[in-house]
Design a binder for these strands. Structure first.
Lengths: 158, 158
DNA sequence: TCTGAAAATGTATTAAT
DNA sequence: ATTAATACATTTTCAGA
């Protein structure tokens, strides 16, 4: 019998993978048997595909905590310019700071973009004064407040 | 008998919630019975807490696809300045564009920060030329390439 | 806490490339 | 020859009361 789910030469995920993923994106704990029934394959097949995708690092099934609900009221983007010879050191220091959720090396006038979560303004100001400003090698920063998230498409669509 | 898991006055999540969450952050499909055994509570308690946290919007159990593995090779941050009267319209248009993963209203010289995912440079340039530049009301943009993610702490830690 | 129903797991087998 | 899908038996988990 013909297999309706052809694995593409060019994509790492085939039709079946995508369909399985689309269920799991909504609910990571949906029973494999239910996915299997909806897609007309066996539960074992679904389980195998999910396992493979996880092993390949394509798919993660994770619990995510809403930072707002967990008391994070202030989210900021801080761009950081660094003297070139100190970049590694600065990154190493930033990596140790819990308020720093994200560090990205970027093009443009600042080498680093960071996202910083704090419970309130006071925590932000003490982060900047007591931690950020004490790191050697930082030449300039640009603090941008996140006022409101207007769109967030976490789900991957082909 | 005293309850070892005190619900804090200041946090919406108590100790038990955090411990449950820390298991689910690693593996959203871990059996509740296993969490229960590790924490010395009943499976029912774990199930109830997870249900409550999900109902309250604190916790989501989701499948996440690694964009790199799914063919996304170019990630950019695009800051967008908009004439004030057109902000809503611009946001509405951006919301319809699939390459735009994230839109945040920000302080600073640009009102909007967006994150844009494309498969390659060509897709990025056609996004900018054919979509972004055709939106009425945008006065200035600043395109920043994400070169490398150096830290990404998705997990919430108290 | 208990219990039937549902789901997940493990093994062996078959099919496809 | 290797990889994936299926069938089925067993164990575990789930979701009520």
């Amino acid at each position: 019998m013909e297999n309706a789910f052809q694995r593409s030469l060019y994509s790492e995920l085939d039709d079946l993978d995508y369909q399985i993923v689309s269920f799991l994106q909504d609910n990571a704990r949906i029973p494999f048997t239910q996915i299997a029934k909806e897609l007309g394959v066996t539960e074992k097949t679904v389980r195998l595909r999910v396992q493979q995708m996880q092993d390949d690092g394509m798919l993660s099934l994770v619990g995510v905590v809403n930072p707002i609900k967990a008391g994070i009221r202030v989210e900021t983007i801080i761009f950081i310019a660094v003297s070139n010879t100190k970049l590694d050191d600065v990154v190493a220091e930033l990596q140790e700071i819990p308020e720093v959720r994200l560090i990205v090396l970027t093009s443009g006038e600042y080498q680093l973009m960071t996202q910083v979560f704090t419970r309130n303004q006071e925590e932000l100001s003490s982060f900047i004064m007591d931690k950020l400003n004490k790191i050697d090698g930082i030449t300039r920063t640009n603090v941008i407040m996140e006022l409101k998230v207007l769109k967030s498409k976490l789900k991957f669509i082909r």
